[in-house]
Design a binder for these strands. Structure first.
Lengths: 195, 195
DNA sequence: GCTTCGCATTGATCTAGGATAAGAAATGCC
DNA sequence: GGCATTTCTTATCCTAGATCAATGCGAAGC
């Protein structure tokens, strides 16, 4: 069950099968059904999710009832609620867009694993830094790019999500309305754009 | 010279003066003059900056020549270029808005320090997680809030920057034009808003 | 097989904020 | 102190994308 996660780790860092067995019994796998709500805004959570199969999302709902997607997490992606680490309630909701299998990682997993496999620390640091630069790029897009540019960027980043996810969710991730996205797509088709 | 940084660390984690002396000789302090360019887009850098006094910023310049501020770093804030850790050139520029003193932290500082002071690892992890949730909130604002809401949020977050930084830079951080920010401020004044 | 529901598209209209331009007010610089 | 350069404000006009409304359409449920 944890096999794909082991491969994911071993691709990044030198961990033997024995070491993996030692640390992995802290991990649990959980299955979520399609549309299952996983975390509500206001809840306290310290868990991270590593998606084995399926698709999770985190999102907010604003005062007018509109939802804004903060992150998609398809296979091999992480999704974590971080306010819990600081004893604050979650700002966001998490649910499963598709039926999903995910590894639940308790908040102290990295620390405990690092006592057995020291290189977990630099790995953790690298992954967090990667998440930060990823989000900086997104902020830069939101500050500077048009609806069309954002959509093209999205397709490049998540080529397979384009077909898996309803368009209104993509629009919500891009910060535009579904109607606008539909028009952007129409224009692109007219320009003979071919994803 | 490193005194404020020692205090900053000791507030977060149990480090003795002796331990701090052991790790701190890896650190250098550098002074940047007002408007000094520190890092160009395309450069490779693996350095982090901890601001002791003054104010740094990271920003991009888009195809039309407009600048977009990704981050302000006043006293006690970190600013790091992360692409360098992944052998990629920087996406952003860094410069000093005010004359600034900053600690230069080499990329392997945390690892090496953690061998002497193990709690540097969880501290690092906590700080990176904090940066991530901070950026998630910003993304949420950019997706959902009006110009006025973003400005009010900015004032709450950086109360002292409002006076230190020219308004066009605040506008650039908020993703609006300086003219729009001027209008927002006028409206707020009209509503008897008092920062 | 019909109905409902969610999603996508299209058209018409509206609006927040952008672009442009031009003064006014600060600020910096010899 | 006085000139130059930024910065800020204000007014006018403009546009990307939002909103509102109607239609289409495929999949799901019964």
């Amino acid at each position: 069950m944890l096999e794909p996660f082991k491969e994911y780790l071993q691709k990044k860092v030198a961990i033997t099968d024995e070491q993996f067995d030692l640390i992995s019994h802290k991990l649990k796998v959980k299955t979520f059904s399609k549309n299952e709500m996983i975390l509500m805004k206001g809840d306290f959570s310290t868990q991270g999710f590593f998606v084995l199969s399926g698709l999770l999302r985190s999102y907010s709902i604003d005062a007018k009832g509109k939802t804004h997607i903060i992150q998609f997490a398809p296979e091999q992606w992480w999704l974590s609620e971080r306010n819990g680490h600081f004893n604050e309630p979650s700002d966001f909701f998490i649910d499963a867009i598709e039926s999903t299998q995910a590894i639940l990682m308790p908040k102290d997993f990295i620390n405990e694993a690092a006592e057995i496999v020291p290189c977990m620390n630099p790995l953790n640091s690298t992954m967090l830094n990667n998440a930060i630069r990823f989000m900086q790029k997104r902020i830069n897009m939101l500050l500077s790019a048009t609806a069309e540019e954002r959509y093209l960027d999205f397709i490049k980043l998540y080529p397979n999500l384009t077909l898996r996810v309803p368009q209104w969710m993509i629009a919500s991730y891009l910060g535009i309305t579904p109607e606008s996205l539909s028009r952007v797509r129409k224009d692109l088709a007219h320009k003979h754009f071919h994803p």
